[in-house]
Design a protein around this nucleic acid. Structure first.
Length: 831
DNA sequence: AAAGGAACTTAGTAGCTCTAAA
DNA sequence: TTTAGAGCTACTAAGTTCCTTT
């Protein structure tokens, strides 16, 4: 399984925003073998009150719909983890499903979403075919200069004044690098030395054309020899996993550029270009891994300087003059009038303290209570209104202007491939919006200047020009063991950094995303053993062991986060290891009622049945402790993770969340998908997605208009019900030959026609009832987070292929870009 | 081994844009 | 054409984990 080296040119060519025509169709392949697969009982019984502590609830000013997003009490769901979970050994070889990788090549990001219904489905032999127009030249096209001279590339990035220069180069080749498919884990197991063998394997690999797939997607990049070897050994799959892993790690360490490129390079041996270096086997000398070889970018863009508006606020009813600096901060406060922060004393106090420093002790303004920011607030509202009223041409022009300014910062060239940068905009000044009861909310987050910023860039790349005249960067580094392009210290908490990273669609991110899921998949092979171990230790005499066992159980069963210690100057939230005595109530005979604030101060409320020894252990841990004491007093995340690593290489607490989320999706999809239309299948997907979101406790606040929307739905339903009633009466009459009651009694309707109408209407009502139900159910559930972070996209892609669901019905444009590495997965892929 | 530093993933929301119903 | 609301993106806060230093 999983862990073989792979490297294929067509997998992961990344695109960005190009548009092109051509729908994606996934076609059913030979029926996938159903695996009996038991997902763990990780059912959350409940309750998604939208309960970020208080402020979220409290609504946004007067608009509140006043709806108490009532936190329903958790139902109790009995737990039975009946059976072992890893039953993948017998995963059958998929039929030779040769995906048209070449057409796939330009898939992601080039999709024009076209509803399936709109176009006739071509009959295709392949599992999946993507029609794509050759992407336009907007991006990703720049010279593949063999030497990859940074300065040449630099021109592409917008450095250097003349655009003419680059025109000279004849070949414009789309240099798209496949995701270097190193295999999982190695990043967390930093150590392996590359053996001669590995080196030769790699070379071979690079020169071998990819064959049609045979097994799961992890194989498809292997040279045939390897695959054959592997398949004969497939029986022993799970036991050999670890070895494979290590090997794969070695093999792929350095990461390969595309086949084409690689081939070229091989010819051109002896070159000392940076490219070649990248193909060499990384020495891996113990210290940090090399993340890139060449890195070119233009630094960051700063928010524009403050433009004073001159609108005067009032103090004790009189206008006050403020300096631009004072006015800027006053404005930040004024415009937050409609937020819940205004109900919070912490926010106001923190703001006042920082603002007062700017005003000075002897300023006219002596307290916040007598300040009236209304004039500034009104000014701001009218500015907003003006913006809204602008014609669409004006808006467009403005947007274009912005894009033009930002264009050069949007891209970086990593190892010769132009890719998107994530957050290239420096955070503008503002008032800190900490979540939950954050002690620092309202503090002034000061403006970041170039002298705060450290730039990380390739040695040979030109250092980005500092965009603010007369200022300079704090520091320039050339550290290729990290992926950040720049960082500065968080002005609110100077111990923390704010980083500029590549975008999610970049290969650097895609790579680690894939590794994350591979690691989670590996857990499958260990989970049975891990569960057995912790079950045994529920009753361990060694209290540390016992606590580790119970904590691991909770993390596994309830998908709790690890729970690191937090400082006093952060919001008071907990995770598993930091649970307090009062966060868990034992309810006989064996129920545990959890109630705490987790990440982002999102409330976790859940009551679950646990195994009796766990129940007993919790009682024991609580004994002789006060509220506020740690439930797991012998435990912290580092001890827990150290223990987990003994059970599986690279295992940490967060892997359980990924594992449980993904395996639940895989399981649900494969159990619940029935024949039906695409709409039904999407429904199945969403239901599965919802289940995962609930397991992970991904919440959102109830939209302000939710109640209104619900009552509108109800009205419509009532209306339809009225219609239905009338129709039924008509039917009666029609049957008896009486004249119809309904208004349009002109033409006589046959009983059949009426019956037909009745059926239609009932269907409509049913659908609306269902929609209403879903809407209500999902009002506090956020589906996006799990899709983005927890669900292995290959599960989704493979399912789409198997069931002829167009992938763009499930993934939006940015997800398609982010998951480009997963698009060519074998239809038979199972997590 | 505890504390702190560093780097990266995960998270909800504000405010936009797109779409379809009125 | 207008507008409600669904859907998306950008933003940045808040986690986890690994590594280094004390």
């Amino acid at each position: 399984m999983a862990v073989e080296a792979s490297n294929k040119p067509n997998v992961s060519d990344r695109f960005d925003d190009d548009d092109s025509d051509g729908p994606i169709y996934f076609k059913r392949s030979s029926t996938a073998p159903k695996k009996s697969q038991l997902s763990p009982e990780v059912r959350k019984s409940t309750s998604h009150g939208n309960d970020r502590q208080s402020y979220k609830q409290a609504s946004d000013g007067p608009c509140s719909n006043g709806q108490s997003s009532s936190v329903q009490k958790g139902k109790i769901v009995p737990s039975s983890r009946a059976s072992p979970t890893n039953s993948y050994v017998g995963r059958s070889k998929a039929s030779t499903s040769n995906i048209k990788t070449s057409s796939l090549k330009s898939s992601v990001g080039n999709l024009k979403v076209s509803p399936l219904e709109d176009k006739p489905k071509p009959r295709l032999e392949e599992n999946m075919v993507i029609n794509v127009k050759e992407e336009n030249n907007k991006i990703n096209h720049f010279e593949e200069c063999e030497d990859n001279k940074d300065n040449q590339i630099q021109k592409d990035l917008g450095h250097g004044s003349s655009a003419n220069n680059k025109q000279e180069r004849p070949s414009t080749l789309s240099v798209k690098r496949p995701l270097e498919q190193t295999d999982s884990l190695h990043s967390s197991m930093k150590k392996s030395k590359l053996s001669e063998h590995a080196a030769s394997v790699k070379t071979k690999q690079a020169s071998v054309k990819p064959e049609p797939k045979a097994d799961d997607d992890d194989d498809d990049n292997l040279p045939l020899v390897h695959r054959m070897k592997k398949s004969s050994a497939s029986e022993a799959k799970s036991s050999s996993t670890k070895k494979n892993l290590t090997k794969a790690t070695e093999v792929n360490k350095a990461g390969l550029p595309s086949f084409k490129k690689q081939a070229k390079k091989l010819k051109k041996s002896g070159s000392d270009s940076e490219y070649c270096k990248s193909t060499k086997l990384t020495p891996s000398s113990g210290d940090g891994q090399k993340k890139w070889t060449t890195l070119v970018h233009n630094g960051v863009i700063f928010p524009p300087p403050y433009q004073p508006h001159g609108v005067k606020m009032l103090y004790k009813g009189k206008t006050v003059d403020l300096t631009p600096e004072q006015e800027e901060v006053a404005t930040m406060y004024a415009v937050m009038r409609d937020t819940d922060y205004m109900q919070k004393d912490t926010f106001k106090n923190n703001f006042w303290n920082d603002w007062r420093k700017l005003l000075g002790r002897n300023h006219v303004i002596q307290n916040l209570k007598d300040c009236d920011f209304t004039p500034i607030y009104d000014w701001y509202q009218s500015e907003k209104e003006k913006k809204k009223q602008m014609s669409s041409e004006e808006k467009k022009a403005l947007k274009e202007e912005k894009v033009k300014q930002e264009e050069k910062y949007m891209w970086a060239i990593v190892d010769g491939v132009k890719e998107k940068v994530g957050n290239f905009r420096v955070e503008p000044p503002g008032l800190f919006r900490g979540r939950g009861e954050h002690p620092k909310m309202g503090k002034l987050k000061r403006r970041i200047r170039p002298s705060d910023i450290t730039i990380n860039i390739g040695k040979d790349a030109p250092i980005p020009e500092c965009p603010i005249p007369g200022e300079r960067w704090k520091e320039i580094r050339h550290d290729n063991t990290v992926t950040w392009l720049a960082f500065w210290n968080d002005p609110i908490n100077p111990k923390l950094f704010k980083y500029v990273f590549m975008a999610a669609s970049s290969s650097l991110k895609g790579q680690s995303d894939k590794e994350k899921y591979e690691k989670a998949r590996m857990l499958k092979d260990y989970i049975e053993n891990i569960r057995a171990t912790y079950t045994k230790n529920f009753t361990s005499k060694d209290i540390t062991k016992q606590q580790i066992a119970v904590a691991t159980y909770l993390i596994d069963k309830l998908a709790l986060r690890a729970g690191n210690e937090k400082d006093d100057d952060e919001a008071d939230t907990v995770g598993c290891c930091t649970l307090k005595v009062e966060n868990v109530k034992a309810k006989p005979p064996n129920y545990l009622e959890f109630n705490f604030l987790g990440k982002d101060s999102i409330k976790y409320e859940n009551t679950v049945a646990v195994e009796q020894p766990v129940y007993n252990a919790i009682l024991k841990f609580q004994k002789d402790k006060q509220p506020g004491d740690d439930l797991f007093d012998k435990l912290d995340t580092s001890k827990l993770n150290t223990h987990l690593k003994e059970l599986m290489p690279g295992l940490t607490a967060k892997v359980f969340r990924t594992f449980n989320a993904s395996i639940t999706l895989d399981d649900k999809l494969n159990t619940d998908t029935k024949d039906g239309d695409v709409g039904d299948k999407i429904g199945v997907y969403q239901t599965a997605n919802k289940e995962v979101a609930i397991i992970c406790n991904h919440q959102r606040s109830v939209s302000k208009s939710h109640t209104a929307q619900m009552s509108r739905l109800n009205e419509k339903i009532d209306e339809l019900k009225g219609v239905l009633k009338e129709l039924k009466q008509d039917l009666d009459r029609a049957k008896k030959g009486k004249p119809l009651k309904s208004a349009d009694g002109k033409r006589k309707k046959t009983p059949e026609a009426i019956e037909n109408k009745i059926n239609q209407t009932s269907l409509k009502i049913d659908k609306m009832e269902r929609d209403k139900h879903t809407k209500e159910e999902l009002k506090t559930v956020a589906l996006g987070t799990s899709k983005i972070n927890y669900l292995d996209p290959r599960i989704t892609v493979a399912w789409c292929k198997r069931h002829e669901v167009p992938i763009e019905k499930i993934f939006n444009k940015s997800l398609l870009a982010k998951f480009s590495w997963a698009m060519d997965v074998d239809p038979d892929f199972r997590f």
